[in-house]
Amino acid sequence: MIFDLLGVPPQALLGQLLLGLINGSFYALLSLGLALIFGMLNIINFAHGALYMMGAFVSWMLLTYLGIPFWPSLILAPLIVALFGMALERTMLSKLYHLDHLYGLLLTFGLALIIEGAFRTMYGVSGRVYPIPEILRGGTNLGFMFLPNYRAFVVVVALFVCLGVWFFIERTRIGSYLRAGTENPELLQAFGINVPRMITLTYGLGVGLAALTGVLAAPIYQVHPLMGFHMIIVVFAVVVIGGLGSMLGAIVTGLLLGVVEGFTRVFYPEASATVVFIIMAIVLLLRPQGLFGKR
């Protein structure tokens, strides 16, 4: 391995760093939504990957059946999936808040299987292609690597959205209601705030983030029913490493793990699928509350 390390020119490392950040921004967006939902609803949202996949598929459907291009569907698809998510929350998840975490996990896991199964029946596992929007095609030669314009766009959007959501929760009045709601919902209710509606909207926001990630991923990856299943397990590890419920933790850890994974793909590619879990095991042993967790 040392020899491999020496054998990799620094430009190639720079390239891998950048690619890692791009993948990390997907992790960050997804784990942010997951952390948000866990923080506010105390639900471990196993359906997150399926909703991410739905975002990609809805965007594909908008294009294929209705001719609606990428830009509008960047807003429309997350909205549609968020509405679907809120319906799930109202009709099913809301019945489970007083029960153990495990019930929420089982319900969302079941929902994930049903959603993925439905798409598999309709479209098969090979999936469909979503073309890269015209003006973002091509790329820039940075000297050390060829950076596709679309990937650069993804990183920028992801960072903006992550920071925006973080600012919204931590620095605005509505955000402070949300945080208060997690601490003491009864008290907040007594102040005249409609807590159940707030929770529904929070779930919608988390789901919308997942769907937005899906829309962003559609032009890069094959749009296929199992795409969320791949992501969700890694993203769970990200959330655990960052500290359950910590939003800043989710963002930073997401980016960081993207980079670690990228480097693993160069130095020891066989381990690239497991490295995240090795880190998770180490973090759980040394710092069970996660890197950014309180308590």
Partner: peptide, 16 residues
């Protein structure tokens, strides 16, 4: 370069 079965992102491998 060997990648795990069922990989989503090939960018690192392609760069290599």
């Amino acid at each position: 370069v060997r990648h795990p079965l069922d990989t989503q992102d090939f960018s690192s491998y392609l760069l290599q």
